[in-house]
Structure formats: structure tokens, C-alpha cells
Design a protein around this nucleic acid. Sequence first.
DNA 1: ATTTCTTGACTGATCGATCAGTCAGAATCT
DNA 2: AGATTCTGACTGATCGATCAGTCAAGAAAT
Lengths: 213, 213
Amino acid sequence: MGAVRKPNHDAKLDALERILVAAELGFAEKGFDGLGMKALAASAGVSQSLLHYHFGSKDRLYAAVIEHRSSLINQERQKLLQAIEPTAADRLAQVFRALFLPALGPSGGGRAYARIFAGLIVGNARDEILVRKNYDDTARLFVAAIHDCFPNSTVTQAAQIYLAALGVLTAALPRDGRAGRLAGGEHLENNQDEFVESLIRFAVGGAVAIQNG
Amino acid sequence: MGAVRKPNHDAKLDALERILVAAELGFAEKGFDGLGMKALAASAGVSQSLLHYHFGSKDRLYAAVIEHRSSLINQERQKLLQAIEPTAADRLAQVFRALFLPALGPSGGGRAYARIFAGLIVGNARDEILVRKNYDDTARLFVAAIHDCFPNSTVTQAAQIYLAALGVLTAALPRDGRAGRLAGGEHLENNQDEFVESLIRFAVGGAVAIQNG
DNA sequence: ATTTCTTGACTGATCGATCAGTCAGAATCT
DNA sequence: AGATTCTGACTGATCGATCAGTCAAGAAAT
């Protein structure tokens, strides 16, 4: 079993990790203003003071959660993006796959961070800064990749396609319960892979349609 | 000047309307938990007590804002939906137009409510209830309309298309600043009509692509 | 022994909500 | 008509609870 690290380091990292995990869950469920430091400390099993000791302020703790998770996601996204064969026929689909998969996989943080991520996109000034800092660089790589798939298009069009695809992702992500509700109780396939592939098909179809318009 | 109503009634409605307008702006900018009743009262030019006098609680005031705006949007959406010729070739595009336009037009409440609307879709339990109550009925009409465009599809697929289209709308709505950023300062067309039409093309292309998959 | 980690006790500010009470005008009574 | 009662709109003061953040001192690790 697991404990490979030295016991002293273990204790320290355990508290920090518990805080980050609890914060991710808490912020996802209640939002930045909805989650109190006291409640967060309780759900992490530490004292409220420890949050300030490690992170200084609520803002920095929030930023740390987003930076940690976005770092993992960006790493995976860039890796997938670079692995795409420039001559592949389904190149655009692979671009969207590189965009969608990391947000849904293990490093994506599951439903919890998906909520935060979706909130970031529509968020306020605080979120805007975090998006700029943690997501814009990788986003530009995707815009460039999309642009490369349509030589006759403008970068602005590629950026709009990127944002629209992000919207598809965020709308589908945190709220799969509603699909079943709107379908009137019809049986919902739970096949995650197939679900992602249909999202990708939607994005590809949308992108091509914008180009032809 | 304009005051057609009796002065006593006028004073009452003015306060109520000012509260609703200020609340819509405030909730859009700061979110439910971020906007305090005291700050809201100040920006509406009334006492904090009056908010509770008229609405009872912060939750009910929030619900009133959403109910008021969603009612206008739903009305317009249903009107456009019913006006669609069943045999029209671009029927699916008209369905998405009926979905998108009211959220962007004058009854959509502008950027302010667009923020709230986008937040609702990814929101928490409180928002979930409001969505169910204020949006699901009309949403089912759209799912049915989409389903009608693809006779061989399942209702679940239609529901997923509807949600994906909503995602396209919400992602494009409140954050047009980012598109320019990601495009590297390239000039952004401000033609609203053309922008909506490209969103519609994206949704139509995505829907068809899902069907063919 | 010294640094690092963690805690409990505490602060001023602000939260949503409630209170008694003011005020203007409509309704009712004489 | 004049005095009275009633009602709805509205306010300032204040409630207990909770907010984020601070601090000195204990606990643990090196």
C-alpha cells in the first residue's frame, strides 16, 4: 500500500491535500461566496486558522484550487494536442477530443471541478482574472489548432468555435440529470465514452457549419 | 409627462421596479451569495427593510427576479416556436433561432440576466429548483421540436442536442471579451444579428452531426 | 533548540432577518 | 363635512448568527 513518502512529510501533505479536496468540493457546491471558511475547515477536518496559515486568504485558497486543477488539465490537453498527426483526416475531432477528455478524466477532478470550471466561464471579475492566468495560454493553442483546420478562416472565427465548443462541454458536464428529465424518463445510456464522442461530433459538426456559412 | 397611473400606485410600483432592476444587475454581477441585501437596498435607493417587506426573504426576491425574466423569455420563445412552418426546409434552424433570439433581445434583459441565466444552468440546488419550475416546461417543447426534425432519433438524443445548444448560447453570451483576447486582438465584428446566425449554424451543424453519428 | 505545523480563543465587520413605529391616504362612521 | 379608523408602504434600529481574518501559544518534527 501506498505510504511511500516519509511520515513527516506525509502528515503535512495530508492536511494540505485534505484542504484542497474539501475546498474543491465545497466551492463546486456552494460557490466562492457560499462556502464559509469555518464550514470548509470543518469538512476538511482542520481548524479554520490552518486555512489561513497555508493559503493566507480565501481568495488565494480559491486560486490555489483552480491553479492546481487547471495545471493538470492543461498538461493533459497540451499532451493530447501535440500528439495529433497534422495530416490526420479526423484532425478537428482529435482537437476537440483533446479539449474534452482531460476535463472528464481522472485528472479533471470529476463532477466537482467541472462545476467550478463551468462557473469560471460565466463568472465575475475574480474568475475572469483566474481564467486569464490559468487557461488563456492553452486556450490559444486550441484556437490555433482549430484555425489550422480551416485555412480560409479568420482567427476570430476559430476563437468563436473554441468558445462554442467549451459551451457544449460545460453545458453537458455538470447537469446530466436534466437530460433525463427533459427526455421524459426515457432510459439514459450511461456510456461515458460514447457520450463524449457525441459531444465531439456535435462540436465538429458545428465548427464545419460555421465555416461553410 | 408620462405618469398615467394614479400617483399613489405610481410610487409603489416605482420602488418595486427599482428593486427588481437593481437585483437583476446585482445578482448578475455578484451572484446570489455575493450580493448583500444591504448593498442591494442601497443601489435600489430603498431601505433594506423594504426588500423584506415586499419579498419576504432573499430567496424569494431571487426567485422573483428569475420568474419575471424567464416568463418574458418563455413567452417569446413559445411564440416563435409556434410560428414555425412544419414543412419549412430550415425548420431546425428556426427552432434554434426561437431558442436563442429571446435570450438576446430586449425581453431577454441584456447582459445582466444573461449572466444569471448562464449561472442557472451550472448552478446549485437552489438554481436547480428554479430551472425546473421556470424553464423545464418550455424546454420540453423545444426537445419535442428538435425530435420532430429527426424522426429516427430518440427523445434522449433530442434532449442532449437541446442542452448542447443551450451550452453554445450560454458560452457565447456573457463573455464576448474573451473571444477577442483569444484571437490575439484581431478585429471583432460587432454585428449582433450575424453573430446569432453563426451560433444557429453551429447548433444546426452539431445537431445533424450527432444524428449521423 | 529551532523551525514547522496546528490549534483555540478572539476581533470587528457584515450577514439576513425582525421589530416597533411613522406616515399618507382611503375607507368608515357620525 | 368632519372626525375616526384602518391599511399599505416604508424606515431606522437592532437582533443573533456568521463572515474572513488575527494572534499567541502548544504540539510535532528535525
